[in-house]
Simulated assay, not measured.
Amino acid sequence: METRRASRQSSSPAERAGALAGRTGPGNPYYSGPPSDHFDGQKFFNPNGLPPGSFRDLLRWQTGGGRSKWPANWPSPHAAARPAERIDGGALRLTMVGHSTLLIQIAGLNILTDPVWSDRVSPLSFAGPKRVNAPGIRFDDLPRIDAVLVSHNHYDHLDLATLKRLQIGHDPLFVTPLGNDALIRTAAPGARVSVHDWDENVRVGDGAVVHLEPVHHWSARGTRDRRMALWCGFVVETAAGKIFFAGDTGFHDGTPYSRLASRHGEMRLAILPIGAYEPRWFMEPQHQNPEEAVSGMMLCNAAYAAGCHWGTFHLTNEPIDEPREKLFAALAAQGIAREKFRPMLPGEVWDVPEIG
């Protein structure tokens, strides 16, 4: 059942300002709503979970050393892909663009996850984490995009410049959790945005449904808006199978994955973060490591998994290729074949087998 409707925002600046003022509360620039088991009236939180580190913790990490040096350029072995216009029948094709941006082609739909085509993931155009490899699909080579899943508002997942380009060139349906619509509408007036709480869903095509699922993370665009917009993962339910895209998540004792299994049953594919996990004392609540990603794959009953959130932007301390090495070691320890869980690189295309 669709619980919130997609809508078009007026292109009038005055009307946009008025609409935004009418739906945000004191101290929260993004969202106003009743308290719940994950919203206290001003900020969102992880039920029974750990909060993100404090500013003091951030300074301790940034000044504590231990950050591995990454190459300025780390080209993918795969050439930029030129996707088909549509993939029909029971097929599922996954193409890696970079970091957490992937093109999902299934059941005649083209879906992008957390799209970023900008060179940097930062509030500044001249500083901050910069790409070490080119996007695995040139923007102009994209097929017509039907839906865009935006999991939360961190800069490496919500890139306003890219969302604006997508709105102008493709007019997709943007699906996002509470509060993030305020950012999207400001950058892309006229965008179709379907905004939801956890456990809500929306139809994105003939028979396809996107479910918003709890994950263990947080949000912020600056120093004064921490946890004021919601974060989520997504389950894309189609006639050709179910796909889980986690966005960003800490493992949280496996809670997000166990919950998925009880709600949705078997997954054909899970798209899971495997990078940005060191140092563990700081990153553990928000970013799982490769060993935890393998456990997550097993807990949510995913037949296959794709590793993302590694090898494109230098965000944390681990070496650039360590997530892949640790993933392979974790798979071996569990007796899982490497072809079941691919750490994908830009331009890589995977025709994911059908289940059974």
Rank of each mutant, 00 (worst) to 15 (best):
R16D: 04
R227W: 03
I243V: 08
R221V: 03
M297D: 06
A305H: 00
F44R: 02
L178M: 15
P256D: 03
G65Q: 13
N28D: 09
D159G: 00
W310Q: 07
P214E: 00
L345M: 12
V294P: 14
G136F: 04
A306E: 03
L124Q: 12
D253E: 15
G275V: 01
T255C: 06
H314E: 09
V210W: 04
L160Y: 01
D156A: 11
M96I: 02
Y30A: 04
A191D: 01
M1H: 15
L102H: 14
L158Q: 01
S68R: 12
R263N: 14
Y155C: 07
T95W: 03
W281I: 01
F245V: 02
G307D: 13
A84I: 03
A302W: 05
R221N: 02
S194G: 09
T176G: 08
G247Q: 01
A21I: 05
T3W: 08
R203A: 15
A19G: 15
M1N: 08
P279W: 12
M1P: 06
R82K: 11
I320N: 10
R4M: 09
I243Q: 02
S258P: 00
G65I: 05
R221Q: 09
W74L: 15
A127D: 12
C232D: 06
G335Y: 06
T113G: 10
W117P: 08
F234M: 07
L20M: 05
A191G: 04
R263G: 06
